[in-house]
């Protein structure tokens, strides 16, 4: 056998052994219990604080708005779609206020004319020309009850 291989083969064997030993210690205990992942990560992820709390949690306090919302076209939306994640607000409603957007740009994200959006599904207007006397959409429309018009 050439002297090179007399050295290289043991080096390769040592390398593979180190890899196997390292692999043994590096693989987490619960790996592979359910599938190709660390089973313990499920509990860890479940223990993380929820950022979006869901419509039901909002309804506990804001039942009037929720009832209005659920009665018409926006009923498919959850509160946090417009107001943002509510977890901090739920902990301390006085300190952490949620946003109340109602500008032309904001509502226009869904309701501005877009040929790629089906008008039969989403009501669309041109935000640049539609009733330009009023600055914001919520000056006339109530987003919780879209049929309602303000003065």
């Amino acid at each position: 056998m050439p002297p090179q291989l007399k050295t290289l083969l043991p080096v390769l064997a040592v390398f593979i052994c180190i890899f196997l030993v390292a692999r043994h210690f590096l693989i987490p205990d619960s790996f592979g219990k359910y599938g190709h992942y660390r089973a313990n990560s499920m509990d860890e992820i479940a223990a993380l604080p929820a950022h979006h709390i869901g419509k039901a949690a909002c309804m506990d306090c804001h039942d009037t708005e929720a009832a209005k919302l659920n009665s018409d076209l926006h009923s498919g939306l959850t509160c946090e779609v417009c107001h943002g994640p509510g977890w901090q607000h739920m902990d301390d409603p006085e300190k952490n206020k949620l946003s109340k957007p109602g500008t032309r740009e904001f509502c226009g994200k869904c309701h501005d004319m877009n040929p790629a959006r089906r008008t039969s599904v989403i009501h669309q207007i041109d935000i640049k020309t539609h009733n330009i006397d009023r600055a914001n959409c919520i000056d006339c429309h109530n987003p919780h009850a879209v049929w309602e018009m303000k003065d």
Binding site: P2, P3, Q4, L5, K6, T7, L8, V11
Partner: peptide, 17 residues
């Protein structure tokens, strides 16, 4: 790696391998 053999035979192995 400690392979310090410089005999023609070993060097020929270098080339071959």
């Amino acid at each position: 790696l400690g392979v310090t053999d410089l005999s023609p035979k070993t060097i020929a192995w270098d080339e071959k391998l």
